[in-house]
Amino acid sequence: MIRSDPSRTTRTLLFGAGLAAILILTASCSSPSREYAVPAELCGVKIAPSVLDPVLPPGKNVGTSSTAVGENKRCRLHVDDESTLSASIEPWERNASAPDVARVALAVDPSDTPSKDRRFIYSKTGAVGRVNCPNTSSSNQFLWATVRVTHDEATVGEMRELIAAYADAVAASSECGEMLE
């Protein structure tokens, strides 16, 4: 007759219960997934998906909508029909500074982190940056780009990367010529 060791059976049952608990907790605590492709443009302005990817939330569907108010152009990126990122291009007087633009922008404040060259100001929810348009020495205006996220999943560093890439993408697009004519 073979007898089983009660302490071994107990250990096996406890191990199995512990493993099951870990699997259940892992499944319930895992992050939601992103089922959409990260866009390669914001309303016609080409931008690397690698700078958009870290600031976008999980979800199933993505889309964009654009509006123009006066001389300002705004692009909203929606995930599952909720606005998650807003980007704008705005003409400002030539002598405007990043703190001037941040003063009226949403989700960024003039006292937030400035770049060393003072071209950008950024926080974990918003950023502003001057667009260095080519061939605009005769213009009385500069273009400024702004970006804002409506969730808390972005970091200050990711927003810095996003505003720098977006401002450079605007400079490389047709927006400079169209908006500063």
Rank of each mutant, 00 (worst) to 15 (best):
S97H: 00
R94P: 00
A105H: 01
V101M: 09
A98T: 05
P110A: 03
R76I: 11
C75A: 12
P110D: 00
P114A: 09
R76V: 12
I89R: 01
V79Y: 07
E82A: 11
P91V: 00
A87C: 14
D80N: 13
S97T: 08
A96Q: 04
K73W: 08
G70I: 08
K73G: 02
S97E: 01
R118C: 05
L85C: 04
C75L: 13
E93P: 11
L77W: 06
T84K: 15
E71T: 06
N72C: 10
A107D: 14
W92F: 13
E93V: 12
S83T: 11
P110T: 06
R118H: 12
D81L: 07
D80Y: 06
V79M: 14
S88E: 04
S83K: 12
D117T: 11
A96D: 01
S111F: 05
A102W: 01
P91M: 02
R94L: 06
N72A: 15
S111W: 02
V104Y: 12
S111R: 06
A96N: 03
S88A: 13
D112Q: 03
R118S: 11
R103Q: 15
R103E: 13
D109I: 05
V108Q: 01
L85M: 10
E90F: 08
E90I: 11
E82M: 09
D109T: 07
A105G: 01
A105D: 02
I89N: 00
W92M: 15
A107C: 11
D100Q: 08
D100N: 13
R94I: 04
V104I: 11
A96I: 05
P91A: 01
L77S: 11
S83F: 08
D81F: 06
T84S: 15
R118M: 08
V101Y: 02
R118W: 07
A102M: 09
A107M: 12
D100A: 13
W92H: 08
T84N: 14
D80W: 02
G70V: 05
E71F: 06
T113K: 14
E82H: 14
D109E: 07
V79L: 14
H78C: 09
H78W: 13
V79I: 15
V79Q: 10
E90G: 04
G70Y: 09
E90S: 14
P91W: 01
I89F: 03
E90T: 10
L106P: 10
A96K: 07
S115K: 04
G70R: 10
V104L: 10
V104C: 01
E82G: 04
D112H: 01
S97K: 00
A98D: 05
P91K: 02
D112N: 10
L106M: 14
E93F: 07
S83Y: 07
K116L: 12
R76K: 11
S83L: 11
S83I: 10
A96W: 01
K116S: 14
T84L: 15
E71P: 06
D81Q: 09
P99L: 03
W92E: 12
D117P: 10
S88Q: 05
L106T: 15
R118D: 09
V108R: 00
P91Y: 00
D80R: 12
R103M: 15
I89T: 05
D81Y: 05
